[in-house]
Design a binder for these strands. Sequence first.
DNA 1: GCATATAGTTTAGATACTATACTATATATT
DNA 2: AATATATAGTATAGTATCTAAACTATATGC
Lengths: 183, 183
Amino acid sequence: MLNNIEIWLERLSSLYISQMRQAASEQGFQLVNLEILQYLSICNDYSNTAQAISEYLGQTKGSISQTLKIMEQSGHIERRPCTKDKRVIRLFLTEKGQNSLQKMSQHMVQIPDENPEVLAGIKQLLKTWQHNHHNTGFGQCLSCKYHQTAGGQKFKCELTGEYLPLPDKFKICREHEFENQTE
Amino acid sequence: MLNNIEIWLERLSSLYISQMRQAASEQGFQLVNLEILQYLSICNDYSNTAQAISEYLGQTKGSISQTLKIMEQSGHIERRPCTKDKRVIRLFLTEKGQNSLQKMSQHMVQIPDENPEVLAGIKQLLKTWQHNHHNTGFGQCLSCKYHQTAGGQKFKCELTGEYLPLPDKFKICREHEFENQTE
DNA sequence: GCATATAGTTTAGATACTATACTATATATT
DNA sequence: AATATATAGTATAGTATCTAAACTATATGC
């Protein structure tokens, strides 16, 4: 039987999924299409691949590959082969894809006031959860142990050694690992 | 672009969905099957119908009807015609269904400590959200404006006029409406 | 050079999804 | 009481998604 917090979490997520489905449906999409568009809008340049989407959504890469094919044909995403690693194909939202996502987002959650306690609670919950499941990937760069501040308009990723544009620290990365357990 | 709390909520729900998918997959189910089993385990006796599931999950009733048919054939749920309203067929988890759900739940979220602030945050968020979307259904009886305490081992539902067993106040109901906005 | 790992595609078969039309029962209106 | 409307569920057709498995191609490690 679900305990107290689990039943609330279940309902919150169920409501979220339901809203997602309805928003997607109004634009002629399935749930998974909206999830992919949303993911591509918040992931960084290390994480915009079919493999990463497959891991993020917990579905087989074959299924994702098939869905991506259709989404490319319909003009919502664009595929660009990676020059550094020729196995990799990077994915990007087209303008059409961004417009669709924006329309669907308007039907999604609207949180009026930025209640700090609510935010803190959710952060804490997510962190505990990921830690308990040894699930390290897919967090924002700024909370990653490889994140290092650098001068000017860049920050450094200690994992890849690259310097990345400052706004990207809010994006999520498949290589993400939290700083430490006590933070 | 998603604001701060929305991106965290998105990640929390995405993680939840991902865990759901994986847990379901290990038992040979799809996401929707787990959602249905879970819903039936927490809904009250007014809400265990195909129509309610359809509303809760945000999917067409035709699709749900089809899925329920297969789940009955596989012995995970049971259908009993309602004697009061002959249009209605009530749904129940079989022992097999309960066992499957329990196995899947073990792979789901494990929250170690009942942090009151986290719980309060989630409750507040859910309430605000439902209110903003004029989404009143599917809450626990105890937070419903029709809920009335009664003596003994029962409480009363002012909407239907019936007396219900006390433990049912924790279950969720499709007719749920919050007491008022300030509470 | 060879084994192994990783990224992605393709195929076949099962399942889910929407939209629509349909039956049956309940409720509201005249 | 008769009729209209609403509600609960089913059935069908066509499309999309899903998994599992086999496949190609490139990268990495020994």
